[in-house]
Amino acid sequence: NDEAKKEAEKLWKNNKSEDEIKERLERAGISPDEAEQWLQELR
């Protein structure tokens, strides 16, 4: 999970869309709710 979150953070810094980041997190096995929460922390 931490690995996926690091990846999400990297994508965020590269200005990827939130949808793309969420999709990537969900593919890594993170629930949509958790993915949404993680994005809010990044904002």
Rank of each mutant, 00 (worst) to 15 (best):
A8S: 01
K22M: 11
E36G: 02
K16E: 12
R27F: 07
E7A: 10
E7D: 06
L25R: 01
E36P: 02
K16S: 12
E41W: 10
A8H: 00
D19P: 07
I21P: 01
D2E: 12
E3L: 11
E36N: 06
N15Y: 03
E20N: 03
L42A: 04
K6L: 08
E34V: 14
L42T: 04
L42W: 09
Q37S: 10
A35D: 01
K13I: 11
E3W: 14
E41S: 07
Q37T: 05
I30G: 02
W38S: 03
K5M: 06
E23T: 09
G29I: 01
N14C: 15
E3N: 10
D33Y: 08
Q37M: 10
K22T: 02
N14Y: 03
A35Y: 09
E34P: 02
P32H: 08
R43M: 12
D19V: 10
L39N: 00
P32V: 07
E36W: 06
Q40P: 01
I21C: 03
Q40D: 11
A28V: 08
R43K: 13
L11A: 05
K16I: 15
N1W: 15
D2C: 15
E3G: 08
A4E: 03
W12D: 14
L11R: 03
L39D: 02
K10N: 13
K6F: 05
S17C: 13
I30E: 00
A28F: 14
W38M: 09
W38I: 14
R43Q: 06
E18A: 11
L42I: 08
S17W: 04
E3T: 10
E9Q: 05
Q37V: 05
Q40M: 07
K13D: 14
K5L: 07
E20H: 03
R27P: 03
N1E: 09
E9P: 00
A35I: 15
L42K: 04
D19E: 14
K13H: 12
D2A: 12
R43E: 06
D19C: 15
K5G: 00
E7N: 05
N14D: 15
W12R: 13
K16C: 15
K5Q: 03
S31T: 08
E26M: 14
A28C: 14
L11T: 00
E7H: 06
N15I: 03
E23D: 09
K6A: 11
E34W: 05
W12F: 14
I30T: 03
E36S: 04
E20F: 11
E23A: 11
R43T: 05
Q40Y: 01
E26F: 13
R27C: 14
A4R: 07
I30A: 04
Q40C: 12
E34T: 13
E18C: 15
R24Y: 15
R24K: 12
E26S: 12
A35H: 03
K13V: 10
L11Y: 06
A28I: 13
Q40L: 06
K6T: 07
K16Q: 08
E41D: 09
L11I: 05
A8C: 15
A4N: 04
K10M: 12
R27M: 11
A35G: 02
E26W: 05
K16W: 14
K13L: 13
D33C: 14
P32E: 07
A28Y: 14
D33K: 11
N1K: 15
P32Q: 09
D19M: 11
R43L: 09
E20Y: 11
E36I: 04
S31W: 03
K13P: 15
R24V: 15
L11G: 11
E34C: 13
N15M: 07
E9A: 05
S31P: 12
E26V: 14
R43V: 09
E41V: 07
Q37A: 12
